[in-house]
């Protein structure tokens, strides 16, 4: 039985919550059970914003977990908070554009992606979340990259629609870097 628990974390505005939602939508589209729960406390204002996504073949129990199977960290405070918590054998995706330290965990698969820089080259540094999501998907196969692309087309807001293709390119670039 497949059961994945992923934490996405970054500064408010970096799109950690949206990246998590997109993964949940993709999981649902592939017929899996999904849950998405954000941190909604005062720490969201200027501090870290994070969400927990669970994608499972079975009815989901605890929606809030301490030790995720994967963590996607968009900034340094997120790295410091979640690097120690990922389950042994898990995946840690690090945005090296903003996180200059290296992981000290030998029991994780750590993927370093200069996500904000790549997103900037593709036209908008705010697409760093999609670069990171692409890297996570390539490293874990939680869902297919194709499904994520499809769901992006459905759930990108009207205002952001012009960014659909660049966002897809960001996803693909993240996946490509994770496969290297």
């Amino acid at each position: 039985m497949k059961h994945e628990e992923i934490i996405f974390s970054g500064f408010g505005g970096q799109g950690a919550l949206f990246a998590g939602q997109l993964l949940a939508y993709a999981g649902m589209a592939e017929g899996r059970q999904v849950s998405w729960i954000p941190s909604y406390g005062p720490e969201m204002r200027g501090g870290t914003a994070n969400c927990t996504v669970i994608v499972s073949d079975d009815e989901i129990g605890a929606p809030i977990i301490k030790n995720p199977t994967s963590a996607v960290v968009l900034n340094l405070p997120s790295m410091e908070k979640y690097e120690p918590l990922v389950k042994p054998g898990g995946v840690l995706v690090v945005n090296t554009s903003l996180v200059e330290v290296k992981s000290t965990r030998a029991d994780l698969r750590v993927i370093y992606v200069p996500a904000s820089d790549i997103a900037g080259e593709l036209g908008n540094p705010r697409m760093a979340n999609l670069v990171m999501l692409g890297a996570l998907i390539a490293a874990t196969d939680i869902v297919s990259l194709e499904t994520v692309g499809q769901e992006l087309g459905v759930h990108l807001s009207e205002r952001q629609r012009k960014w659909l293709e660049p966002n897809k390119a960001a996803l693909a670039k993240g996946a490509e870097l994770a496969r290297l």
């Binding site: 849950s35 998405w36 729960i37």
Partner: peptide, 10 residues
Amino acid sequence: DGAIGQMMES
């Protein structure tokens, strides 16, 4: 509770 209110699920 707050978690039921804030959580998204299918």
